[in-house]
């Protein structure tokens, strides 16, 4: 589904990683590990197409992503460090906006189901301002269920989640892969997901003195 070939990432004149290759196919889960600053978030942003690779290329179904960036965007759901939640809007309004935006207006019924899955249904009409950090995280993750994309890109999804929510996330990822989807998860915590490929970014770190520019 998505593959990277000899990717390199340059941030502020420093090579974060180089010669990194990966492959995620249908029904596969790729777990990114590595110490802080090893480039997990950068790699996820690169996969999403937000950050262009400094070197190497990204292939979607065997073809370079740049050939069809719109198609690539329509394939993926990204949940990053920031939740992308508007505090003055209600929980339901926050989610409905993305449900409609990601489908050009077709969805809507999925919102209630997604909120129920994440235990947010009783809070639906509450302004997002009053949510706790963990609840905001759950609202951000609920977006995965309404956008129905085949590739999930999750950057530290378990931060601020309680144990029950981590289990929910694990079940959702399992369900997603059973439906033929794929997921890339950058995490420090162990996820309750069996049989996933692990990619440690520590092996691709460029030496500290290897600066450019």
């Amino acid at each position: 589904m998505l593959a990277g070939e000899r990717l390199a990432c340059l941030r502020s004149h420093r090579l974060i990683f180089a010669e990194l290759s990966f492959r995620v196919g249908r029904g596969e889960v790729l777990v990114l590990t590595g110490r802080n600053g090893s480039g997990k978030s950068s790699l996820i942003r690169m996969m999403a197409g937000l950050l262009p690779p400094f070197d190497g290329r990204l292939l979607r179904d065997g073809r370079p992503v740049q050939e069809d960036p719109g198609g690539h965007r329509a394939d993926l759901a990204y949940v990053g460090h920031l939740d992308g939640i508007k505090l003055p809007l209600t929980v339901a309004a926050n989610l409905s906006f993305w449900a409609a935006a990601d489908h050009h207006g077709a969805a809507g019924a999925g919102v209630e189901k997604a909120l129920a899955t994440w235990g947010l249904a009783p809070l639906a009409q509450m302004p997002a301002r009053y949510l706790s950090a963990g609840q905001r995280r759950r609202l951000a993750l609920a977006r995965l269920l309404v956008s129905c994309r085949r590739l999930w890109l999750l950057d530290e999804p378990t931060v601020a989640l309680d144990a029950a929510s981590v289990d929910t996330l694990g079940q959702l990822v399992q369900q997603h892969r059973a439906d033929g989807g794929a997921a890339v998860v950058a995490t420090h915590a162990a996820l309750p997901i069996s049989d996933c490929t692990e990619l440690s970014l520590d092996g691709f770190a460029a030496p500290m003195e290897d600066t450019i520019g």
Binding site: A48, G49, L50, G70, R73, A74, L76, Y78, G80, H81, L82, D83, G84, I85, K86, W98, A101, D102, H104
Partner: peptide, 14 residues
């Protein structure tokens, strides 16, 4: 930009 909405807007179909 600060709350992450911009990332999602960049990735949205619009």
């Amino acid at each position: 930009y600060e709350d992450g909405t911009l990332d999602l807007l960049v990735l949205s179909p619009l």
